[in-house]
Amino acid sequence: MTASNELKSASELGRFISFEGTEGVGKTTAIEALCARLQDNGIDYLRTREPGGSPFAERLRSILLDPATSIDDDTELLLLFAARCDHMQQVILPALSQGTWVICDRFTDSTIAYQGYGRAHGDSVMLTKIDTLIAQFIPQLPELTLWLDLPVDEGMARAGKRSVADRFEQQASDFFMRIYEGFSALADQHPDRIQLIDANGSSEEVNARIWQVISARFDLS
């Protein structure tokens, strides 16, 4: 963050909120509902996503999600962070400095869960690589992360009803079980930042749970 941003008080800066979860948990629907609620409350917001969020990062997203892409785990990791670094510098930090709330579909927790646990089975070497990249290139993490918690099998069944599976969605179920373990480990490690949201039930019920957490955290009506 620039020196001018550091001079701003917390009340002048926007809030940074991320949504996480395995496939098919309903992040898109939940984010749409939250953005509508923020608008109703007169709160300026920016909705974005990862990988992607900036023109350059969106080009990398198309490569990362393309089933025809064949790369090793380290290359995948570095492409994700190249996209994230540009996204952060070009989109997220400028928005926050203007007092805009940033609502992001996935952030660093997804990399830890997908690449650290899904790809690398929780290998300490890969997790250390990820932590190092975060420390070096990501100057600000979300202050609140909403983990939409749903059994993996149920989420995969929902995801299977969507369009053609991307490069990650084509993985076997045990890959997503390891991802779930990663999110669970992260929630245990960061209880102040990561809030588990029960993603079972109707969208209205899930949205109400999310708003209850956000309104309490940020003192909204």
Rank of each mutant, 00 (worst) to 15 (best):
K8V: 04
A10H: 11
E12N: 09
R15N: 09
R15I: 01
S18P: 10
G21Q: 00
G21I: 00
V25Q: 00
A33E: 05
D40E: 13
D40M: 04
N41F: 05
D44S: 13
R47W: 14
R47T: 07
R49N: 15
R49F: 02
P51D: 08
A57C: 05
E58F: 07
S70Q: 11
L77R: 04
A82D: 12
A82M: 11
H87F: 15
P94R: 03
G99R: 04
V102C: 06
C104F: 09
D105P: 04
F107S: 08
T108S: 09
D109G: 02
S110E: 10
Y114E: 09
G118E: 02
M126V: 15
K129L: 05
T132V: 13
T132W: 03
L133W: 00
I134H: 09
A135M: 12
F137H: 15
L146N: 06
L146S: 08
W147E: 00
D149I: 07
R158Q: 00
V164H: 13
A165V: 05
D166T: 01
Q170S: 15
F175R: 10
F176A: 06
I179H: 14
E181C: 06
G182D: 09
F183S: 03
A185E: 08
Q195F: 01
I197F: 00
I197C: 00
D198C: 10
G201K: 05
S203D: 10
E205A: 00
R209L: 02
Q212C: 01
V213Y: 05
R217K: 15
S221L: 15
